[in-house]
Computed example of a mutant assay.
Amino acid sequence: MTATQTPTGRLLGTWPDGSADWHAARAGRLGGSDMAAVLGRSPWTSPYRLWHLKAGRVQEEPTTPEQARGHYLEDGIRRWWGDQNPEFEISTGGTYVHAERDYQLANPDGIVLEGGEPVGILEVKTDGQDDPDTWGKSGTDEIPLYYRTQILWYLDALGLEVAHVAVLTARLEFRHYTVRYDADEAAALRFRAELFLDSLAFNAPPDFDGATSTYQTVRELHPAIDGTPVELTYAEAAAYCSAKHALEAAKERELYERSVLADRMGSAKKATYCGVTIGTRQSRGGGDPFFVAGRKLPDMPAPTAQEAEAA
Rank of each mutant, 00 (worst) to 15 (best):
M1F: 04
A3S: 15
T4A: 15
T6H: 06
L12P: 08
W15P: 12
G18K: 04
G18M: 13
A24W: 01
A24T: 06
R26P: 11
G32P: 12
D34M: 01
P43F: 12
W44R: 07
P47F: 03
L50P: 09
W51N: 02
H52L: 08
E60W: 11
E60C: 04
P62H: 05
P62V: 03
R69S: 15
R69K: 13
G70C: 13
G70Q: 08
H71W: 11
H71F: 15
Y72D: 14
R79P: 04
W80R: 12
G82K: 07
Q84E: 15
Q84M: 13
Q84R: 14
P86C: 09
E87A: 15
E87N: 10
T92S: 15
G93C: 14
G94D: 07
H98F: 10
A99N: 07
E100Y: 13
R101C: 12
L105V: 02
A106T: 01
P108D: 04
D109L: 11
I111Y: 04
I111D: 02
V112G: 07
V119L: 08
I121V: 15
E123R: 07
T126N: 12
T126G: 15
D127Q: 12
D130F: 08
K137N: 05
S138T: 11
S138C: 09
T140H: 03
D141H: 06
P144D: 04
P144K: 03
Q150D: 14
Q150L: 12
D156A: 15
V162E: 09
H164A: 09
V165H: 00
A166Y: 05
L172H: 09
L172E: 11
F174Y: 15
R175G: 13
H176L: 06
A183W: 02
F191M: 07
R192V: 05
E194K: 10
D198T: 06
D198F: 03
F202N: 11
A204L: 10
P205K: 03
P205D: 03
P205A: 07
P205Y: 03
P205W: 02
G210D: 12
T212P: 07
T217Y: 02
T217N: 05
A224K: 04
D226H: 09
V230R: 07
E231Q: 12
A235F: 06
E236M: 08
C241T: 05
A246L: 08
R258K: 13
V260N: 05
D263K: 00
S267E: 13
A271L: 09
V276F: 11
T277R: 02
T277H: 01
I278M: 10
G279P: 08
G286E: 05
G286R: 03
A293Q: 02
R295D: 11
D299Y: 11
P303S: 09
T304D: 06
T304N: 08
A305G: 10
A310G: 14
A310L: 12
